[in-house]
């Protein structure tokens, strides 16, 4: 008896009225994949920076712009105080965050297993202007859970990391790694749900608040 795999493939081919594709056609399809052809890319009038901020703010993320990385720690402290949040934060091991000189008043711990941190600080791989999305990728120093478990998620991103569209992010990722990272998260606002009477409430399962710090 042939396996379910062979049966499904045979049914698909029968439905398409042909047998297995010949090698030449298969090569054509692989070439189509390798071309990474882009489709219609909607135009927008704003500058990427304006658009990025506008879209994120429209999705109820908070947003600040700082000139230099030196100012990040103070901004985070201000944010935590304003929200009455504890000054104990889990940070990802991203290189951008190494440059931050944490004051003694903030207990910044590089991420360790556990789930009791209410605040996380991570760095974005890049930012997408079109949709106002932060792109975060998993890795040795970037645990994905920091993007979803805490109540407050603070993301630091440098202005030079802004790209126009999702497609630009794909090209950038392809150039920097051989293989897709295990998790690629586009984050475009705090967690929300409209499952109770079609009315939006924030903080469903992921962070209740998303704070974006754009540097440079």
């Amino acid at each position: 008896m042939s396996s379910a795999r062979e049966q499904v493939l045979a049914r698909i081919r029968a439905a398409l009225g042909r047998g297995e594709l010949d090698p030449a056609r298969t090569t054509e399809l692989r070439d189509r994949i390798a071309m990474h052809r882009r489709h219609i890319e909607p135009a927008f009038d704003e500058t990427p920076r304006q658009r990025f901020r506008q879209k994120l703010e429209a999705a109820e993320a908070s947003f600040v712009e700082l000139d230099t990385l030196d100012a990040v720690a103070a901004e985070i402290e201000r944010y935590l105080e304003a929200h009455g949040a504890e000054k104990r934060i889990a940070t990802s091991g991203d290189e951008l965050l190494h440059a931050i000189d944490w004051p003694a008043s903030i207990d910044a711990q590089p991420w360790v297993a556990g789930s009791d941190h209410r605040v996380s600080v991570t760095a974005a791989y890049c930012g997408i202007a079109e949709t106002g999305s932060l792109l975060l990728v998993s890795g040795e120093k970037n645990p994905t859970r920091l993007n979803f478990l805490p109540d407050y998620h603070i993301v630091v991103i440098e202005a030079k990391q802004l790209v126009l569209r999702m497609e630009d992010a794909w090209d950038s990722l392809r150039a920097s790694t051989k293989q897709m990272p295990r998790s690629v998260n586009f984050i475009s606002g705090p967690s929300k749900t409209a499952d109770v009477e079609q009315t939006v409430e924030y903080g469903a399962h992921g962070p209740r608040c998303l704070h974006v710090i754009l540097v440079g």
């Binding site: 091991g93 998993s138 295990r182 475009s188 967690s191």
Partner: peptide, 24 residues
Amino acid sequence: ATGQEITAYTTFTTGPRRERDADG
């Protein structure tokens, strides 16, 4: 679907955690 240009989360997942990944 909901009149959103993009949802809060769009996630691409590829395989299990890598050897040196922090989680997954």
